[in-house]
Computed example of a mutant assay.
Amino acid sequence: MPTLTAPRRAPCQVLVLPFRKTGSDTEYALFRRSDSGDWQAITGGSDDGETLLQATKREMKEESGLSADTLPFPLQASATIPVSHFAAHATWSPLLYAIPEHCFAADATGQTLSLSPEHTTCEWFSYENARQHLIWDSNRTTLWETTERLRDGILLP
């Protein structure tokens, strides 16, 4: 009988910021990490063989319970993260020092979010309140770009 092994972590990261429309306002979902207490958007890695879209949708489902038909909107925001932040870096090339983080927004209007064990809570915030809770530049840039694109009406899948 074949042995099942966990997929190997690829050197790639995704970040997804869920938002919802509440009348004329927009709110943003942030998740409090159970290990550090930091507030952030949905983040996670891709597995070897996964496309960026597959990894993004899987992380959205795993960390927030967003439905499979929720479209992630790719953003121009991006970042790199030192490989030392990831346990899997020991399996990557020793010449790799930083991995790319690809950023997305996701319309969660009308959906109920759930928590993975990675988080202790999830809350909806206004732009200013979310900005004050975020410590990572990539999260703040993603929040800003999502807000600007929603204002301009050009958030496209």
Rank of each mutant, 00 (worst) to 15 (best):
residue 2 P to S: 06
residue 4 L to G: 13
residue 5 T to N: 10
residue 7 P to E: 11
residue 10 A to H: 06
residue 12 C to S: 08
residue 13 Q to G: 11
residue 14 V to W: 01
residue 16 V to L: 07
residue 17 L to N: 01
residue 19 F to D: 00
residue 20 R to E: 04
residue 21 K to M: 13
residue 22 T to F: 04
residue 23 G to P: 13
residue 24 S to W: 00
residue 28 Y to T: 09
residue 28 Y to V: 06
residue 29 A to W: 02
residue 31 F to A: 11
residue 32 R to I: 05
residue 36 S to K: 08
residue 36 S to T: 15
residue 39 W to Y: 11
residue 39 W to H: 04
residue 40 Q to P: 15
residue 40 Q to D: 12
residue 42 I to D: 00
residue 45 G to D: 06
residue 46 S to W: 00
residue 46 S to I: 00
residue 49 G to A: 08
residue 49 G to I: 10
residue 51 T to E: 06
residue 53 L to Y: 03
residue 54 Q to G: 13
residue 55 A to T: 02
residue 58 R to P: 04
residue 58 R to L: 13
residue 59 E to P: 00
residue 60 M to V: 11
residue 61 K to D: 01
residue 61 K to A: 11
residue 62 E to M: 09
residue 63 E to C: 02
residue 65 G to D: 15
residue 65 G to H: 02
residue 67 S to C: 11
residue 73 F to M: 12
residue 75 L to G: 07
residue 77 A to S: 13
residue 78 S to G: 12
residue 79 A to M: 05
residue 80 T to R: 15
residue 81 I to E: 08
residue 82 P to Y: 01
residue 83 V to M: 02
residue 84 S to P: 00
residue 84 S to D: 02
residue 85 H to S: 07
residue 85 H to N: 13
residue 88 A to V: 01
residue 90 A to I: 13
residue 93 S to E: 00
residue 93 S to M: 13
residue 93 S to C: 08
residue 94 P to Q: 03
residue 94 P to E: 01
residue 94 P to S: 03
residue 96 L to K: 06
residue 97 Y to L: 11
residue 98 A to F: 03
residue 99 I to G: 01
residue 100 P to A: 14
residue 102 H to P: 00
residue 103 C to T: 04
residue 105 A to D: 04
residue 105 A to V: 04
residue 105 A to E: 09
residue 107 D to G: 05
residue 107 D to L: 05
residue 109 T to H: 03
residue 110 G to F: 10
residue 113 L to C: 14
residue 114 S to L: 04
residue 114 S to T: 15
residue 115 L to W: 07
residue 115 L to N: 13
residue 115 L to I: 14
residue 116 S to D: 15
residue 116 S to C: 10
residue 127 Y to D: 07
residue 128 E to V: 05
residue 132 Q to N: 07
residue 132 Q to I: 09
residue 132 Q to G: 10
residue 133 H to S: 09
residue 135 I to R: 08
residue 135 I to H: 09
residue 136 W to I: 01
residue 138 S to V: 15
residue 139 N to F: 11
residue 143 L to C: 06
residue 145 E to V: 12
residue 146 T to K: 03
residue 147 T to Y: 04
residue 147 T to S: 14
residue 150 L to V: 09
residue 151 R to S: 14
residue 152 D to F: 05
residue 157 P to R: 15
residue 157 P to W: 04
residue 157 P to F: 07
